[in-house]
Amino acid sequence: MLEVKNITKEFEKKISQKETIKFLADDDISFEAKEGEVVGILGPNGAGKTTLLRMIAGIMNPTSGEVLVDGKNHKDNSIEIKKDIAFLTGNTKLYKDISPYELLKMCGEYYGLSKDELDSRIDEIIKKFDMESFKHQRIDTLSTGQYQRTSISRCVVHDPKYYILDEPTSGLDVISSKVIIDFVKEAKANKKTILYSTHYMEEAENICDKIVMINKGKVIIIGTPEEIRKKTKTTNLRDSFFALIGGENNE
């Protein structure tokens, strides 16, 4: 199980040459994700989703609060936890000058897989994501769809238990988005725990079991899509979001 407990992240922002201000990117956020559950992290741009997911993945430290993965915290077990997590975001780009095969090999080596283990895992992944035709091609020559499949494959090379996907379909066309959605559905079927951040409310409604809505760094509601619609007396999550934030200006 993945538990987020009262997590807060404070940043300093330079507003002029001499002046800096402090602001909370995430403010006292708590929720949990059980095995096989797809938890949607929803919110507009700048709501604090990426920072939250970076803290959960252990690549950023919270100012206060903690993240527990199977009861272990990042402070004492960071490397162990990272071995159980796959983190895919719009910000995690791939090296352009290597091939998908070299990328998978490199990631597998970081995860400490033995040579035999890694070879069979790479074969399996290449077959699964239909990458045979471009596995030795330089990444900067891949099409968007091939790039996306390579991105996903590098996340799963170590067969993780937890998937953290930060706006994975943002900026993608329908076909490339489908690759991601299918991947999430399959992972869910395999009892993987998935945190799925997006600002596409309809997408979240389709694949998420539970929704954590965030605005300006704060959780505004947690529940299943149905519960949220009921609570807000709306017919879809988009309307629910607007009903919850009222007339607030998000700029």
Partner: peptide
């Protein structure tokens, strides 16, 4: 600049 540093940081490396 290319966003690969964050990719590396997601891996089990300090």
């Amino acid at each position: 600049e290319h966003g690969t540093l964050e990719t590396i940081l997601t891996l089990p490396i300090t």
